[in-house]
């Protein structure tokens, strides 16, 4: 497993990947009948106006043609979707937020452990660059204001913690954006739903163009 991510980084380093391609989200505006950029400002306005994220980012069963086993998680980071394979060519699809420029990654990992209302401890580099994070250098207790939200699934490569997680959020408007430090964020209702369906050990496949940006530990 570990070599998979390393090989991908090598491929990208050799220029095989189309690095630097933007995969920003667009949302359809029925008033102007045009696609408009779904940036953080637009996302906040949309959430305030509708009280929820765009319907495509809401939890739903979709057709998913795969030979992967039921219980496998497939993350399409470019399209901001997380699929949980259900079998019979179906999957549960959830909207997600993913790593911003420079923080994206791809690979095959697994759910190493799970936690309810997790404590958030910002990494040292985040503490150094963000005064808000520095306040919680020794750990922020779980709760509705915690950036990890209601649940966290810790992603491991082999027996090593990748430092990446699938977790909830205290910013529900941020689904559909490239906004995290590499973690996969979901709305709290969705991450609770996923948490209940996925056991420790579940396979997680992360697809993202520009995967050279992975910074393994």
């Amino acid at each position: 497993m570990r070599s998979t991510i390393a090989r991908m980084a090598a491929l990208a380093g050799a220029g095989v990947l189309a690095l630097g391609i933007a995969h920003a989200t667009e949302v359809f505006d029925p008033n102007t009948r045009t696609w408009v950029p779904y940036d953080p400002g637009q996302a906040i306005r949309y959430y305030k106006q509708h009280g929820q994220v765009p319907s495509d980012f809401q939890r739903q069963v979709v057709t998913f043609r795969t030979a992967e086993k039921p219980g496998t998680i497939v993350i399409d980071a470019n399209k901001h979707f997380l699929y949980l394979v259900l079998g019979d060519f179906k999957a549960m699809r959830y909207g997600i937020g993913v790593g911003r420029d420079g923080f994206g990654w791809a690979g095959i990992v697994r759910v190493g452990r799970k936690t309810e209302w997790p404590t958030w401890t910002p990494p040292a580099e985040m503490v150094a660059r963000d005064p808000k994070a520095a306040k919680w250098a020794n750990g922020m207790p779980g709760g509705v204001d915690n950036p990890l939200g209601a649940r966290a699934m810790y992603l491991y490569e082999g027996n090593q913690d990748t430092i990446y997680r699938i977790h909830g959020t205290n910013e529900p408007w941020s689904i559909g954006l490239d906004i995290s430090s590499g973690c996969i964020r979901m709305n709290n209702d969705d991450v609770i739903d996923l948490y209940e369906r996925v056991p420790v050990g579940a396979k997680v496949i992360v697809l993202m163009q520009g995967a050279a940006l992975y910074r393994g530990v």
């Binding site: 933007a22 995969h23 949302v27 359809f28 030979a67 699929y83 163009q209």
Partner: peptide, 25 residues
């Protein structure tokens, strides 16, 4: 058909995830 309100898309077209995995398998 015209997209529904709330429809989203990525600005760059990539293969659907299930087709990518079909290739991998």
């Amino acid at each position: 058909p015209e997209p529904q309100s709330g429809a989203v898309r990525a600005s760059v077209v990539t293969a659907p995830a299930d087709l990518q995995l079909l290739c991998a398998t």
